[in-house]
Structure formats: structure tokens, C-alpha cells
Simulated assay, not measured.
Amino acid sequence: MTIADLRQQHLILFEAISGSRAYGTNLPHSDTDLKGVFVLPENQFFGLDYVPQVANATNDEVFYELRRFVELLLKNNPTVLELLGTPAECVVYQHPLFARFRAADFLSKLCRHSFAEYAVAQIRKAKGLNKKINHPEPPARKSVLDFCYVTAGVGAQPVAAWLARKGYEPAQCGLANVPHLTDLYALFIDATPGRAHGYRGLVRDPETSQDVLLSAVPKGEEPVAYLSFNRNGYSTYCRVFREYWEWVEKRNTERYQNTVQHGKNYDAKNMLHVFRLLQMAEEIAESGVLNVRRPNREFLLQIRRGEFEYDDLVAKAEHLVTRVEAAFASSALPDAPDRAAAEELLLQVRRRFYGLN
């Protein structure tokens, strides 16, 4: 099923322009996003092929089946709740039955989680992006040996520096476990002609190995030093390295260039939505009203243009989080929407829609 099918079969209950154009934060080049609600044909609804939502290839046009729409309303999902607060000029089509859905009947303290905690996650995301931009990972990946250190007096040296200072080659080295000491190894050097001990070196392959390599050591050999492998440090580095280059591969080029150009090293569009969500959450907690069209367009666009310092924005956002938490703690909103009433409304609208069609 496609969006064209929904229109052709007259299955749409509601269709609206969403995103920045609904918030009032759009720019001349902003995309036009569409969201909506539809009802499956009766025989398909009662059959095996229930379709919860339909979207276009770029996912900027999304329509929710009536049941899925109500399920998300009961969770106070921001994207779906915002449909009930769509500014009149953004409504493309509304079936008379859809007027029975009112935001006031669904707003609850669950918005603290769905709006505010999502915004907190976006703050963490912004911090991660800030770190990626300011501390890029070099293309060459570090190896296990970069996390290996050899005892030297009362201190330790990177194994490569220690080998160079001693004049040893990695192939001369053999490692053996030290009982009861995790990731600490006795380091042996094969100084025999032709390297008769047959030590295997420190790693199998410096570029691809994920661990050090152990050797069989002849009885009576004495270690020349002890080697420590910082396994946790290596594991953390590998995760950060992988995440960084996955981000480079998948990042939105246009948004990244905008981030670099405004010079503040944060995703300005991301931070705009942090403040939008937190401010909406505070309004919901204090007044029980869902305001989709934002009254502070210029402030939000200042964020988008990168006119604030990153640390100042994060501090303001974290202060706003505290205010939101306090507002919900004293809010008169119910803990959750009335599930029974929502289900009855769902049934009535569906029956009525099928009866009319």
C-alpha cells in the first residue's frame, strides 16, 4: 500500500504539513514534510495484512493507521500528538470524524518522558557530535601494541619505545601468562642464534590482531620484563573509532557543512529541537495546552544560525530540563491518558468510517 493508494481509495482521515513549517521555524529552502492518519479498508483490517503506517521513500511523508495513531497518542508520542495541535493553515485535509480527537484528552505526565527525556537524549547526542568534530579520529587505526606497556624501573614505557631502546625486534619476543594477574605477561627475549626458541612475537598481525600472542617458553628461561595490555582501553578505543567513522559515513553532509560553517561545532538543527521540545513540555505541564506553532521563532532560528556558544546552549538546556521536571512534579495533568476512553473513541470512529464508506 502506498500514499497514492490512500488518496485514491479515500482512506485518509487527516493530512497536514508538519515539521519546521508547522513549528514556524522553516526557511525558504526547508523541505515540506507531511504527516497524517488513515483507515485501512475494512476487509484488509480484519484480514492478516494489517498495515500500521505508510511512508514514501524519503520518509518525509508518513501516514499512521488509525489504531497505530491511537497507540502512539496513549504513549504521548510527540510526533503524533503534534498532529492534534497542527496550525489551521497547515491542515491539508481533515475528515469530519477526525475532529473527535482532541489533544486535551490525551495530554498527561507521560509527556515528561516523551518530550523532555527525548530532548535530554538530544543533548547527549549534541555533546557526542561536539566531541566528534573537535576530536576527529585519524584514518589509521591503532593496534593492540599501542596499548601495551613494558615495566621500566618503577614506571612503564610503550612497548615500541622499549623495544627500540633495547635494540630488540618484535619477532624475538615471547609472552607467557602471569598466573592470577589479568592482562599481565612475562616478556622473554630469544637471543639465541637463529632464534632457536621459536617465539611467536607479540601479535600475529600488527594491523588486524585483537589480542597479544602467547609463546611456548623453554623451562628455565627468565623474563627480561613484564608487559601489560590495557585491554579495556583498547576495547573503548575500538568502539569510539568505529562509531566515529560510521558517523562520517552516514552523516548528513548538508547539516555537517552548516555545523562547520557557523564555527560553533554543534548540530544547530538538533539543538533547535532540544529547546523546542523542552519549551513545549514545560507549557504542557503548566497549562495543559499543546502549542505546535512556536512563539519564539527568532530565538530558535538564532540557535539554528549558530549564534550561541555550545557550552552556553547546553547550560541553558540543562537549566530548562530542571524547570520541566519541577513543572511536571506539580502538574495537574493525569499520570497517563484514559485508555478505556481512547479505545472507545477508536472503535466509534472506525465503525462510523466503515459505515460511511
Rank of each mutant, 00 (worst) to 15 (best):
L72T: 03
L72A: 04
L73I: 03
L73C: 02
L74I: 11
L74K: 10
N77H: 04
V80H: 04
L81G: 06
L81N: 05
E82T: 01
L83T: 01
L83I: 10
L84D: 00
G85L: 14
P87E: 07
P87A: 10
P87C: 11
A88C: 04
E89P: 07
V91R: 07
V91T: 06
V91D: 01
V92D: 02
V92I: 15
V92A: 08
Y93P: 03
Q94W: 08
Q94E: 13
H95C: 13
H95E: 07
H95K: 11
P96T: 02
P96Y: 06
P96F: 06
L97C: 03
L97S: 03
R102W: 05
A103R: 05
D105S: 08
F106D: 00
F106W: 02
L107M: 12
L107E: 09
S108Y: 13
K109C: 14
L110F: 12
C111Q: 01
C111K: 03
C111M: 05
C111V: 07
R112T: 00
R112I: 00
H113M: 15
A116T: 08
E117F: 11
E117H: 14
E117R: 12
Y118H: 11
Y118E: 05
V120A: 08
Q122D: 01
Q122N: 08
Q122G: 00
I123C: 00
R124E: 06
K125Q: 12
K125W: 03
A126G: 12
A126W: 02
K127H: 05
K127A: 04
K127M: 12
G128W: 12
N130E: 07
N130P: 04
N130F: 11
N130A: 11
N130K: 01
K131I: 04
K131W: 10
I133P: 03
H135D: 03
P139A: 07
A140C: 06
S143T: 15
V144M: 08
L145Y: 09
D146R: 13
F147H: 02
F147T: 07
C148N: 01
C148M: 04
C148W: 04
C148S: 05
V150Y: 02
T151H: 08
T151P: 00
T151R: 15
A152Q: 14
G155D: 00
A156F: 11
V159G: 04
V159S: 05
V159Q: 08
V159K: 02
A161F: 11
A161V: 14
A161G: 10
R165H: 07
K166Y: 10
Y168M: 08
Y168V: 11
E169H: 12
A171L: 15
Q172S: 05
C173K: 05
G174A: 12
L175A: 09
L175W: 08
A176W: 13
V178A: 12
V178F: 01
V178Q: 06
V178E: 06
P179S: 15
D183A: 10
D183V: 00
L184Q: 02
L184G: 02
F188K: 07
I189E: 01
I189P: 07
D190H: 10
A191D: 15
A191I: 11
H197G: 15
Y199M: 08
Y199H: 10
G201L: 15
V203L: 08
V203H: 10
D205H: 15
D205Y: 15
